[in-house]
Design a protein around this nucleic acid. Structure first.
Lengths: 338, 338
DNA sequence: GCTGATTATGGAAACGTTTCCATAACTGTA
DNA sequence: TACAGTTATGGAAACGTTTCCATAATCAGC
């Protein structure tokens, strides 16, 4: 059975197709009476415009892409939900895609956009250090980065970003530990090279130590990949080679909680023997035992802003912008004064 | 600048549009030589077919919907990722939507399908107890349920489901506690009525007690909503009115971990004073302190099967089916023998 | 009631595909 | 060489909209 189309409605209502089209799209130049009449017919016959035809004619879709880097992560999951909510309220369909193979994130974005004819794209995480102006130009649609680091030397008017200052956030986390009297502070960071989220959080750690004239020890440093498992493993290595540390900063809550397991397994207590601080402030953090002190990211605001920026550009012809959110330490029970 | 279209390619290649179309769609009746030639032109000009036009002509899209019930939940987040992976490999775009308002899930599904012209829909969670055959008929596209309970008296040939036996799983969890010597067992379930996931898990609890001739105590029962917070609050109430319980079964890990916080805050220890068992086996369960004994759901297999069923129906004309996965208790450190 | 301006409406082209149908170009056989 | 049968190709209609342009209807001012 063929679906009813605009012609059917026009015929039944005894008007032209253009008038029906105008009613559907809320154009003002239709007589109130006619509008009502057509509206009724539409309701009665349960008519829903064909999106493909619409998109074809308009030469654009109402689809936006959400490219998510890496494996499952509760912080990202939270972002996805809030972004979707906002975007769908604005009438857009959100097509998600996880870039889990190792293709360059920018290439994944390009393919995603062209293949699905997306109107815009939001990248959640990912590594864009090698990004060039040409890469962005090639995309042809609004490009928004979030939860990642943005490269230097890029034309800032050609893309948007909604991020935090990772170095600063990290600095305050380590300062928190130092203020508590710690100087033997382990670091569980991520293994990336280039200017990534991980390297900036590492920078913050280094800077805090330097500012406080604490000598940086290379063997206090270990690497994971933002998961429980890798945090656990990194902590085990750390405990073996740096058994004198009194505090640990893990650059994600997942890794911090993984590390906690290793600490506990070794017979040490948190925070009595080792203080522990994480990063993100995912829900898990406050419900961990002991409740985890961590760096809070305003995930809800970040997500909403990210979506709003895209909608503003798409619907209102807004310009690209770069917003940086503040983070704050939320003190719970996983750190002790020395 | 207009995008290159099939006519451009045809003109440049010196062939008809239909031949180009045949090449694009891999039809066999094109001479190898011609195919090669056209292929080259396509590559050279970076031509990508317009999906809207294609969809319009074919009168169908390549979009499938993923309707997610309720707020952020790590179990669902995990499912989303695996389902997307599978579906996108099969060439489908996955449009997500969270049904967070209180509209009936089946209505949300209907709107989602018609509005976006979806080829099929997967519902993650949600309440479908009032579902009728007519509701499903109205959808007109393959309808797959997962992580929910499916109503009785429905024509099973008209939809698919990929689920677990909630009552049985719950039964084994409580039996585990009973076998450990517990008889004063608190229950933190969900507040739904009807035949929902929560009621079935409650049923399993009741059945286990009955089978072991343990009298059911109404004040051992509390209600939450699958979140840390509600689990915490439920446990606080439970502790107040049923301070003699020696074990608690929470029907989701999130609630179990929330409950753990309340137990710990009250000065009691886990498992020494109170044994605790959860449900789902999210990643966090094994990294909680103490590691949480829980009911393991094979989330990866469930997700993959769900996606595969949909693809099979869509691409191979497969029939609807109903698969039930086994669960198992994974014993960790949150339960003690009495 | 006439004019000119304004408002409301209808017709048809165009968006970029796919596919049916017709025909051209080849094959192999007699 | 002629023919039927196959294979390869091209043309054009159709999918369901939106929007431009033309025209019909209405209105205000005299």
């Amino acid at each position: 059975m063929r679906n009813t189309n605009i012609k059917d409605i026009a015929r039944i209502a005894g008007v032209g197709v253009s008038t029906v089209s105008r009613v559907i799209n809320g154009h003002p130049e239709v007589k109130e009476e006619t509008r009502k009449h057509i509206q009724e017919i539409i309701e009665k016959y349960n008519y829903i415009p064909n999106n493909s035809a619409r998109n074809l004619k308009r030469t654009e879709t109402m689809d936006v892409g959400l490219l998510i880097k890496g494996m499952y992560n509760p912080f990202f999951a939270r972002m996805v939900q809030s972004i979707e909510k906002r975007l769908s309220m604005a009438g857009y369909s959100v097509i998600i895609h996880y870039n889990i193979d190792n293709s360059k994130d920018i290439d994944a974005a390009y393919e995603f956009i062209t293949e699905k004819k997306l109107r815009g794209i939001i990248c959640l995480g990912g590594d864009f250090d090698q990004l060039t102006d040409e890469d962005i130009e090639r995309l042809r649609v609004p490009f928004i980065l979030t939860s990642t680091e943005i490269p230097l030397d890029l034309d800032k008017t050609k893309f948007s970003s909604v991020i935090i200052d990772n170095e600063k956030a990290s600095y305050t986390a380590v300062m928190h530990l130092i203020n508590l009297g710690h100087s033997k502070i382990g670091l569980i960071s991520s293994g990336e090279e280039d200017r990534s989220v991980g390297t900036f959080r590492t920078e913050g750690y280094i800077k805090a130590l330097r500012d406080q004239q604490i000598e940086k020890q290379d063997h206090y440093f270990e690497v994971g990949a933002y998961t429980f498992e890798t945090g656990y493993l990194a902590m085990k290595r750390l405990l073996k080679k740096a058994s004198d540390i009194t505090a640990v900063f893990a650059i994600s809550d997942l890794m911090a909680i993984g590390a906690a397991r290793a600490i506990l397994e070794s017979g040490r207590r948190i925070p009595d023997d080792i203080s522990l601080i994480g990063f993100d402030d995912i829900d898990y953090a406050s419900y961990f035992n002991p409740p985890l002190t961590t760096v809070h990211q305003p995930v809800e605001e970040i997500a909403e802003t990210t979506a709003d920026v895209l909608v503003d550009i798409l619907d209102e012809g807004g310009i690209h912008r770069h917003v940086i959110f503040d983070t704050e330490i939320v003190v719970r029970a996983s750190c002790n004064a020395l």
